[in-house]
């Protein structure tokens, strides 16, 4: 029993196709309806709340937002600079710490212990505390040669804190590379160091690129923590503005800047992942 127009397709297959189409339609309808209901209830809840008119006035005042925008934008440049500089130092510290922890040389035992203590301490300490301690503690030492500029103190604090996280991500990546890759490198007469650098690290970094960039998205946001030691970055400017005008729209503006800055990084992660998949699988 073959239908006219589709020779070769059995009635049973046509029936299966029709069922799949019906099922897909039903599922799509359920998804649309539930989304609309949830969003509707949330919106109604907010809009009908007794305080909404006040909230709208203080948080979503367009005129206020527009007037504070240039100031926040200018201050956000500092966030970006902090991020870019700290990122470089974090990577350097993290690679060194990760390698020290991975290398199986017994001669390195004391340094290994130091690396373990470093990661334990700085992963365990809230970043805001590290910022406090470095920002106010280091200048208080009064030692010559130590930086006193807030910018560099901020970079040091973020590097200490994030270096520990990123080192652990990299270490996990290095350990995830199969021992046969080490053997192949060494079998070509490459030294331990060269095998690590040319064979293992490139694969490890590729493998942990998504969690690594996730940490960097987080770092971008945590540059705002440096406002507490007096760096005039975007959050600080928003705070000052809000203190002057009793409006909170400036916070929303600052939040939008942070969101806008992290999205390209997220897309870049996706792009890198897809590219290496495509290249290595020859798709």
């Amino acid at each position: 029993m073959t239908e006219a127009g589709t020779p070769g397709v059995s009635a049973r297959q046509l029936e299966r196709d029709a069922y799949r189409r019906r099922r897909a339609r039903t599922r799509a309808a359920v998804a649309v309806v539930s989304t609309v209901v949830v969003l509707g209830v949330l919106t109604a809840g907010v809009l009908l709340s007794p305080g909404w008119p006040r909230v709208r006035e203080t948080y979503f005042n367009l005129g206020e937002a527009r007037s504070v925008f240039p100031e926040v934008a200018k201050a956000f440049v500092l966030n970006i600079r902090l991020f870019l500089v700290a990122e470089v130092f974090i990577l350097i510290v993290a690679i060194i710490v990760a390698i020290i922890r991975v290398v199986p040389s017994p001669a390195l035992a004391p340094i290994k212990l130091l690396a373990v203590v470093y990661t334990d301490v700085f992963r365990g300490t809230p970043t805001i505390l590290v910022v406090f301690l470095v920002g106010f503690g280091v200048p208080a030492l009064g030692l010559a040669g130590l930086p006193t500029s807030l910018f560099w103190l901020g970079v040091i604090a973020l590097t200490l804190s994030y270096g520990a996280y990123v080192a652990e991500v990299l270490r996990a990546g290095i350990l995830s590379i199969h021992p046969t890759q080490w053997a192949s490198g060494r079998a070509l007469g490459l030294s331990y160091g060269k095998t690590l650098r040319l064979v293992v690290l490139p694969q490890a970094v590729r493998r942990v690129a998504p969690p690594l960039l996730n940490d960097f998205v987080s770092l971008q946001k945590d540059t705002a923590l440096l406002s507490i030691i007096g760096l005039v970055e975007a959050l600080r400017v928003a705070q000052v503005d809000s203190g002057r005008t009793f409006h909170f729209s400036s916070y929303i503006v600052a939040a939008l800047f942070f969101i806008a800055a992290t999205i390209p990084l997220a897309r870049f992660t996706d792009y890198l992942t897809v590219r290496s998949l495509r290249r290595e699988n020859g798709i």
């Binding site: 890759q181 192949s184 079998a187 070509l188 694969q203 590729r206 290595e280």
Partner: peptide, 30 residues
């Protein structure tokens, strides 16, 4: 090891390098 080559059962090529880069790595870097 530069004078005694070995080939493994599971090939163990370097997946992040092209065929040519795989082959050239030893002679150049080692």
């Amino acid at each position: 090891r530069r004078d005694i080559g070995i080939v493994f059962q599971a090939y163990n090529l370097f997946p992040h390098l092209s065929v040519e880069q795989n082959i050239v790595l030893g002679p150049v870097r080692s």
